[in-house]
Design a protein around this nucleic acid. Structure first.
Lengths: 154, 154
DNA sequence: AAACTATGTCAGTAGTGTTGACATAGTTTT
DNA sequence: AAAACTATGTCAACACTACTGACATAGTTT
């Protein structure tokens, strides 16, 4: 029982030390990557969810609410507030589907497009700098690495 | 004025299209990367903040609360709740600093170590798979890429 | 007409984060 | 020794993002 309260004084490590260090790297990289647009969003009273929504709609004009939900992997109720705010403040607009009038097709407005570009700019710059710090041949490999990180694990 | 309500029907793009695509890739990669341990945490009633706390303490045994705060970049009050829960449920323990008795040195317990390893395992596997999908020479470049992503932007 | 689909909304709750204020113990400076 | 500073902890109030479950409406498919 004293066993349970013994402090482990050595850093956790193991055979997969390189992977552990990469976990850390990913945490820091993502934290800082996301911090750039956060500052802009704060002035607008928006959060990260607004950013993501705006981003994916801008990249997939005319996408439906259901498609957006499946990309973001959040619930309808979580998206609802965010989407409402973006529509009410004229960053996004909805049109009825032509074939299926139940569907709401999502588009960014000019205002929305401007915001997306402003939000993405610091992130683009950050990525560009990071690409420039590596060999040109490495880009493809980095993209491959990230692609393999995606999806459910076998 | 009708201008403001014009839907933008073309996907946002630009000269930095590769960077835009990488933004997306990073979003998906991080989302899925973090989803593995999320499932384990849920069963314990913990969240991501618990994971991060446990992780950094395990990697830096004897770190102080202040050091942990500056790594996580959150406020003392945010950490307090999480740290209290981890201490109360015996995953982390505190000892007084030897030189400075105001400081609280943080350690994981055996129980804490076991949990960290369980949480990190799927992430390690994911990273390992991703590394294996790339050329061996690319590892170094990927790490360099991630490192350059970190920090405040010039 | 019935069943299903896409979307929207209501109410309640959880986790993580914030700010500001204040308390206590211990250390450093004067 | 008193004053100032530091490390930590805690209280209250609040914001954002997510969740679940239930229900409503309009439109489509069977």
């Amino acid at each position: 029982m004293s066993d349970i309260e013994t402090p482990i004084k050595q850093p956790i490590t193991g055979h997969d030390i390189e992977e552990l260090e990469t976990i850390e790297l990913l945490f820091f990289a993502y934290r800082d990557f996301i911090s750039d647009p956060d500052r802009i969003l704060q002035n607008l009273g928006f959060g990260r969810a607004h950013h993501r929504t705006l981003y994916f709609v801008s990249r997939n004009p005319g996408m439906t609410v259901a498609e957006l939900l499946s990309i973001l992997k959040i619930t309808k109720q979580s998206l609802a507030r965010v989407l409402r705010q973006l529509i009410d403040s004229n960053y996004i607009l909805q049109t009825e589907g032509k074939n299926d009038r139940r569907k709401r097709l999502l588009f960014v407005t000019e205002k929305g497009k401007d915001l997306v570009l402003a939000l993405s700019q610091p992130q683009s710059n950050r990525i560009q700098n990071a690409f420039e710090a590596t060999k040109p041949e490495a880009r493809e490999q980095i993209i491959e690495f990230l692609n393999t990180m995606i999806g459910s694990q076998k």
